[in-house]
Amino acid sequence: MSEVIVVTSGKGGVGKTTTSANVGTGLAKLNKKVVLIDTDIGLRNLDVVMGLENRIVYNLVDVVEGNCRAKQAMIKDKRYPNLYLLPSAQTRDKTSVSPEQMVALVNELREEFDYIILDCPAGIEQGFKNAIAGADRALVVTTPEVSAIRDADRIIGLLEANSMKKVDLIVNRIRMDMVKKGDMMSIEDVVDILAINLIGAVPDDENIVIATNQGEPLVGNDTLPGQAYMNICKRIMGEDVPMLDLAKNNGFFAKIAGLFKKN
């Protein structure tokens, strides 16, 4: 049984690509066969976050236009035996692919993969429509800022209007020190406003920057974000994993964990 997951947010710069890279890598580490598809045509980035930018021969547009087979365009990540990347095209635009073509491609890949992760571009135009067309479920990434949450709310509305079967929330870049002082909305606040199921929260952490610099996703290592991403992967697979304590000795997080279990 394969699952197609779109990672989306509306607003740019909240961490869609980082989330895609870590969720895809994490699922591969959990012995699932995974392909990551960068659907941001014209602004290719997932390849560089994954550290696979030097190995691109063909891209997504080549595949949908029939210049090559999907197998030829997919880059095998040598670090993990089950992980593949289908990079986006850098010199084309979003109109080069249609939602119908994306559905056909995704359905072809379902035969071979357990998880197909689609990294969605920012915005709600053609690129977004392409990315969500073939997806079974969505991960909405937001940060605890008014602009990102407003856009996430709009995206959730659009996903529901397009009958997306499952929509889960990832609160990214949370800073517990600021939450404690009351200067940042808490995870609870964000979940309360957006009213969808929380599948994980990732702290704002310098290790993310370091990992991106090196082109090596940090999922599964012993850093806080590394653990947070691994927990998200396990929850995607249906495991009931308690919420990570992002701020130690804090009663607040027990509440969040309770909230998650209810859903």
């Binding site: 605890p144 600021m178 009351g182 200067d183 406003i193």
Partner: peptide, 19 residues
């Protein structure tokens, strides 16, 4: 109010009209 609460209140109002 703390700025976090201000943000939450502003968003709640904003999203009602957005929705």
């Amino acid at each position: 109010k703390s700025s976090g609460d201000v943000a939450k209140d502003r968003l709640k109002l904003l999203l009602v009209s957005d929705r």
